[in-house]
């Protein structure tokens, strides 16, 4: 379908991380869907992490490696019994290598309705400068 207005959302099973090393905590680890947008000033990362609260998210930027980890606690109460289960809950984890130099002191993160918005401002030195070419 090309018309985005009439598009219907498709049910998708969350993709699981297949890492060579096992997680220390048992349970599944999912790959969150992300949008990454770049402007001259900053790189914005948007990640869908339903069930992850502001306190449960861990963002780490070391050298060029950005790591996002979110823990979604199981929302079920103690006395509830499964009738049927279509999705699993667990951890979210994803890593990116950033190609731009990021000003680590100005990183801003916001968690809203299960969506993480991460702003990574570029360093002054990494921002593009207009170079005018003189006609000789």
């Amino acid at each position: 379908m090309t018309d985005s207005k009439s598009k219907t959302l498709q049910a998708k099973r969350k993709a699981e991380v297949t890492a060579p090393a096992e997680q220390t905590r048992p349970g599944p680890t999912f790959i969150p869907a992300v949008d990454i947008v770049e402007t001259d000033q900053e790189v914005t990362v948007l990640a869908d992490m339903p069930g992850v609260g502001t306190k449960d998210i861990n963002i780490d930027l070391r050298d060029d490696m950005l790591t996002l980890v979110g823990n979604a606690a199981s929302p079920e109460g103690e006395n509830e019994l499964d009738v049927f289960r279509e999705y699993l809950t667990g951890k979210y984890a994803r890593q990116f290598t950033l190609s731009h130099e990021i000003d680590q002191s100005k990183i801003g993160a916001e968690m809203k309705d299960g969506v993480l918005r991460l702003k990574l401002p570029k360093l002054e030195a990494a921002k593009p400068r207009k170079i005018t070419v003189k006609v000789g």
Partner: peptide
């Protein structure tokens, strides 16, 4: 969509 978990 959406996938649901139903408990009782």
């Amino acid at each position: 969509f959406p996938l649901v978990n139903v408990t009782e």
